[in-house]
Design a protein around this nucleic acid. Structure first.
Lengths: 157, 157
DNA sequence: CCAATTCGGTTTCATTATGCAACCCTATTT
DNA sequence: AAATAGGGTTGCATAATGAAACCGAATTGG
C-alpha cells in the first residue's frame, strides 16, 4: 500500500514532515544553506542517487522550499535556490544539529561551530522559551483547552 | 539496495536524521511529549500500522530516545517513556511545528498554542541566535576554516 | 570546428520499506 | 469460563530506494 501521507493532518508537525520528513530533504536544504546550488554539486556532496535527487529537488520546488532558476546563457543550466520558506528551516536544522552534536558526537572530530558573521562568536543553543526568553522544557508547557474541545467533550461524554 | 544510512557521517545533522529522520519517529516522540506512553495509544492516535510501530519503538529504544518499562503488576504491561535524550528533541519538534504553522497553516483551524505552565503565556518563536540572544538568519553565520581544513587545502591543491 | 566532457536528467532492474489484515499468546474484565 | 484488551508477529501486495546504464543539450579543449 502507499506510504501514509499527512497532507491534511490537523497536526502542523505532521504537515511539516510531509514536506521535509524523509531521509534526504533536510540534508538537501542543509547543503543549500552551505551554498550549494547546482544539481551535480548536490549529487557529489551528498552521495545521493541521481534519480532520488531529481525526485527530491522537484518535490522541494513543488513545496516552494527551493526555486529552480535557469542560469544558462545560451541554453539551459539550472540553479536550485532556497526560498524564504526554505531559509526558515534554519532553526529546524540547527536544532537537529545541536541535538546530534550533544547525543551522538562524532568519535574523533569536534562539532562544526557556526559563528555570527558580525561578531565572530559562536551561535547559542536553541531553546524553547517563554515570552521573556526563559528556557522551557517539555514539562513546563501545557496545551490550553479550547472552547471547541470543551464542546467536543460535552458531546462525547 | 538498502536505504542509505548515515551512522558514521561526519555531519551531525545526518547522524541525527539517522535516528529520527523517517516519517514516523518524530511523530512518535511528539505523541510521547503529549503524554502518550502505551503501545495501543500510540497506535490509535497516530493511525500507524502495528508492525511499523513495533519497529520504530524498538529503534527509538535502541537509540535511547525512549525507554521500555514493564509496569505490569502480575504480568507484562509496557510503557514507553521519553529519556533525557528524547526530551531534548523538544526544540526540534517545536521548530518544526512553528515552521508548519507559518508556511502550511491548517485551512480552518487555529494553530495549537502551547503555553508556559507557570505564567500561562504562549511560548516564543524558535530562533537561532548569537551569544546575546540576537536572532540570526542563515546569512548571518559562517563556518570558520579550521587548521585541519587549511592543511587539507594545502595538500590537495 | 570537431571531439570529449559536463550538466541535468530518465530508464531499468534488484532490493527494501511500508501498510493491511490475519493471527497469536498473555493479562485482565465480566 | 468467556470475552476482550495489550502487545506483538507473520504473510502478502504495493511503493520507495539505490546502482548503473543511457541520453540529449551545453560547454570546453585542442
Amino acid at each position: 500500500m502507499a506510504r501514509k501521507r499527512f497532507d491534511d493532518s490537523s497536526c502542523s508537525v505532521a504537515r511539516a514532515l510531509n514536506e521535509v520528513g524523509d531521509w534526504w530533504s533536510l540534508l538537501i536544504v542543509l547543503q543549500a544553506m552551505y551554498g550549494t546550488r547546482r544539481y551535480v554539486d548536490f549529487q557529489q556532496e551528498l552521495g545521493i542517487a541521481k534519480n532520488i535527487l531529481c525526485d527530491r529537488l522537484a518535490r522541494l520546488v513543488d513545496n516552494e522550499v527551493l526555486t529552480k532558476v535557469n542560469v544558462g546563457e545560451h541554453g539551459c543550466r539550472y540553479e536550485y535556490r532556497l526560498t524564504d520558506k526554505g531559509r526558515d528551516l534554519f532553526p529546524v536544522v540547527i536544532a537537529l544539529r545541536q541535538w546530534g552534536d550533544k547525543w551522538n558526537p562524532a568519535p574523533d572530530r569536534p562539532p562544526l561551530d557556526l559563528r555570527d558573521r558580525a561578531t565572530g562568536r559562536p551561535i547559542g543553543p536553541m531553546n524553547v522559551s517563554d515570552a521573556d526568553g526563559k528556557p522551557l522544557t517539555v514539562r513546563d508547557v501545557f496545551l490550553p483547552v479550547s472552547d471547541e474541545d470543551q464542546a467536543d467533550e460535552r458531546n462525547s461524554g
